[in-house]
Design a protein around this nucleic acid. Structure first.
Lengths: 230, 230
DNA sequence: ATCTGTTTGTGCAAAACATCACAAATTACA
DNA sequence: TGTAATTTGTGATGTTTTGCACAAACAGAT
């Protein structure tokens, strides 16, 4: 974990959201902003700990997870460059991380002080509006996936997750999964054994190809079928 | 379904969120605001239809649901007086209801035009900030429940839902459930038969008492136990 | 009050999944 | 490069949960 302080003003990888801000406001944001790097596997923030920051991903992939029954983790989502994490820490009541964030690749993030961020929101409605846009977009992403995970069975969920990685996370078809199959199981809420068996089935049916951690969706039709049937 | 137009300015049941607005702004809001009443069982808005409104619940209980596999609905949540629904319609990209809302009791709501609402957000950062506060609070409510539903087994989920109704929805202990047991099953993502069987078990174990649609949590300890064990 | 459609309870068989155990493969790192 | 720790695959077994069928209870409307 390496720390680097830098003004947001000169930041070359600004998010869309903050592109609304003028120089003065960017300077303000910069005062409450801290650039940090994490190695693969490092914990960025932990569920339950006090939280004074919103996190912006500049580079890399991050998983969000939550402790469940019997120390078993559930993985909520994988986020990439351009995502804001821990926005719920903007809540004045309960400033406590509700999830854990872990780097699944080398990662660069900005920690942005919630005070500073909150003040900017109040001052600049345009900015706040952009943040709201971002939030509702993000929420919709989550929602369908979570709902599907509740009411579909394991094969359907696995199909979902494969499309999720292709379309939402990596945006490419043969994609290299940055998480282990065990974590994939935690993402769809099942056991690693079930994942192993199903992936084998899918391969034998010619639906996907798996080499090491590289996945290829071959027969999109059939995978959609599985998704629909649950 | 009855329609009543009224200025938000004189509204006696304003939400916390809009308490920030001054008279001028309230008038503006009023222009894009329409009061409507629904009878029990009536559809307020439907998943997939175009959406130009945010909905505020003035009175009554509303369920949000989503079509799943094979016409089976999944119920996301029950909302009450003071809640905002369909905030994700503030998204400029995809103005389409992502869920259906149905009155489970007689209900009074305001339909607020998203244009008007959106302009106020941009103009008034304080207001936008309140809305963000509301959104993150709401999100946290959802989240834990959804996650638990994914990774717990049916008894645990049922326990969750009982606490959910007592603590989040009705805020009283013997509470009268406004939804059928079938819908309860849809809320925890299981079959109505499983719900029937488990409720019987819980009663026989002296954990709850069920008379008609009135539930009483008797042995909180044991119910928590079940919740923890999954 | 009666009729009709919906909701609910329950037994049984079948399906879906988890868990355990252990071996093989892969990865991390000294 | 070699060694230890982690991850992965697979069979056998047991539990959980669903789905079907049918009867009883209930609610709403005329």
């Amino acid at each position: 974990m390496t720390i680097k302080t830098d003004a947001c003003l000169n930041c070359q990888i600004k998010s869309n959201v903050v592109s609304i801000l003028n120089d003065e406001e960017l300077c303000e944001l910069g005062k409450g902003c801290l650039q940090t790097e994490f190695r693969k596997g490092e914990l960025i923030f932990k569920e339950g700990t006090p939280a004074h920051h919103v996190v912006y991903i500049r580079e890399g992939f991050v998983k969000l997870s939550k402790k469940g029954i019997g120390e078993k983790d559930y993985i909520l989502s994988i986020h990439k460059k351009g995502a804001y994490l821990a926005l719920n820490n903007l809540n004045n009541q309960r400033r406590q991380n509700s999830v854990s964030a872990t780097a699944v690749t080398p990662v660069k993030v900005c920690f942005i002080d919630t005070e500073v961020f909150g003040l900017l929101l109040k001052k600049n409605g345009q900015f706040a509006s952009e943040v709201i846009q971002y939030m509702v977009g993000d929420e919709m992403n989550y929602f369908d996936r979570l709902v599907n995970n509740v009411q579909q069975q394991v094969p359907g969920r696995l199909a979902n997750s494969l499309f999720y990685f292709r379309d939402q996370v990596y945006n490419q078809n043969p994609f290299k999964l940055d998480i282990t199959k065990q974590e994939l199981a935690a993402l769809i809420g099942t056991s690693r054994e079930s994942v192993a068996r199903l992936l084998k089935e899918f391969q034998e049916a010619g639906i996907i190809r798996v080499q090491k951690n590289t996945f290829t969706i071959v027969d999109e039709q059939k995978l959609e079928e599985i998704q629909r049937k649950g």
